[in-house]
Simulated assay, not measured.
Amino acid sequence: MPAPEIETLVTERVAQVFDDPLELMASACLEVPADLHASVTASARALAARLRSKEHSLVRDLIAGVEVQQSGIVIHCTPAGIAAALGVDTAATAPDRLTLGAQARLTRSGRALRLVHDSGTQASCRPERSLSRLLAQAHGYWRELRRGELDIKTLAAREGVSASWITRVLRLAFLAPDITTAILKGAQHGKLEAGALVSTGAVDPDWSAQRKLYLPAAK
């Protein structure tokens, strides 16, 4: 399970609830006196920032459980914990749980599981070493070949790999610039993985076709 990605998605989703204090007061059935409304609003926004910094003690106080389902993530918060963090009380009609949904699904990328939104965006943008390393190799190989001092077969022999491998890696030097940038930032399509990128015929020479495959859908 991609625990860091789940943690990022969960804390961000709960932080979004605190971004809207009025909605939070209503959904968690909080009793907020009129004269405390401004201070509670300020506290809610401060708590949102603390959640985004992944303050673990606060997360434990607010979240009772997380379910990873096939269609998304379900987060169970405690209205009592929310009220305590804000320094107010809950109404007698407050539910035991405040349930939130986060639309993301587990997708296998090579050997790893990734948490991916419907648009293809990864829940947590972290550069993948294998992809970054391939890009560095591709541009390094291309710089050497451009000097004209050796050919692909000689380069392959020096690197201890096949000429066909060098050729497949070289294609990555001709990815659209925004795709290269996305990979280095960890913002590529969640299904993209190193093995697929160097498979035969994987890199279309047309940049528009590449973007459809390797970048998340535009929002």
Results as ranks from 00 to 15, higher is better:
Ala173Pro: 13
Ala138Pro: 14
Asp118Gly: 06
Leu145Pro: 13
Ala196Leu: 12
Thr181Arg: 14
Ala138Lys: 09
Arg97Trp: 09
Leu145Ser: 12
Ala48Val: 08
Arg52Asn: 08
Glu5Lys: 04
His56Tyr: 02
Asp206Cys: 10
Ala104His: 01
Val116Leu: 03
Gln122Pro: 08
Cys125Met: 07
Ile63Ala: 05
Val32Lys: 04
Ala64Lys: 15
Arg126Val: 15
Glu12Leu: 07
Ser199Ile: 03
Gly160Met: 10
Leu131Thr: 07
Leu150Met: 15
Ala112His: 08
Lys191Phe: 01
Pro4Asp: 12
Arg111Gln: 13
Ala26Ile: 12
Val66Ser: 05
Arg97Ser: 09
Ile82Tyr: 01
Ala80Phe: 00
Lys185Ile: 00
Thr90His: 00
Ile63Gly: 04
Lys185Gln: 15
Ala64His: 11
Ser53Thr: 15
Ile75Phe: 06
Ala34Tyr: 10
Ala102Arg: 08
Ala91Lys: 13
Thr167Ser: 15
Ala91Glu: 14
Ala104Ser: 06
Ala136Gln: 07
Arg111Lys: 12
Ser119Tyr: 06
Ala112Tyr: 03
Asp89Asn: 11
Ala182Asp: 08
Ile6Trp: 00
Tyr214Glu: 01
Ala209Cys: 02
Ala136Asp: 10
Glu7Trp: 00
Arg111Thr: 14
Asp35Asn: 13
Cys29Thr: 05
Gly81Phe: 12
Glu144Asp: 11
Thr11Asp: 04
Tyr141Asp: 11
Val68Gly: 04
Ala176Asn: 03
His76Thr: 09
Gln210Ile: 07
Ala42Ser: 14
His37Pro: 00
Ile75Ser: 07
Ser43Phe: 03
His37Thr: 14
Leu22Glu: 15
Lys185Leu: 14
Thr181Tyr: 07
Arg114Leu: 09
Lys185Val: 00
Ile183Ser: 04
Asp118Met: 06
Thr11Arg: 11
Ala202Met: 08
Ile166Lys: 11
Gly81Arg: 08
Val161Met: 07
Arg108Leu: 14
Ala202Arg: 02
Thr167Trp: 02
Asp118His: 10
Arg171Val: 00
Ala3Gly: 00
Ala182Asn: 11
Leu98His: 03
Arg50Asn: 09
Ile179Phe: 11
Ala44His: 03
Glu23Val: 07
Leu197Met: 14
Leu36Asn: 10
Leu62Ala: 07
Ser132Gly: 09
Leu106Glu: 11
Gly72Phe: 04
Asp206Trp: 01
Gln103Pro: 02
Ala64Ile: 12
Ala34Cys: 00
Val88Glu: 05
Met1Asp: 06
Thr41Tyr: 10
Ala83Thr: 13
Arg126Asn: 06
Arg108Gly: 10
Gly81Pro: 05
Gln103Asn: 11
Arg97Gln: 14
Cys77Glu: 05
Ala49His: 10
Gln210Arg: 10
Glu12Gly: 02
Glu128Ala: 09
Ala91Asn: 02
Ala182Tyr: 08
Asp20Leu: 05
Leu24Trp: 02
Ala102Lys: 05
Leu47Asp: 01
Gly140Pro: 02
Ser53Lys: 13
Ala138Phe: 12
Ala94Thr: 10
Ile73Gly: 02
Arg129His: 14
Arg114Gln: 15
Glu23Phe: 03
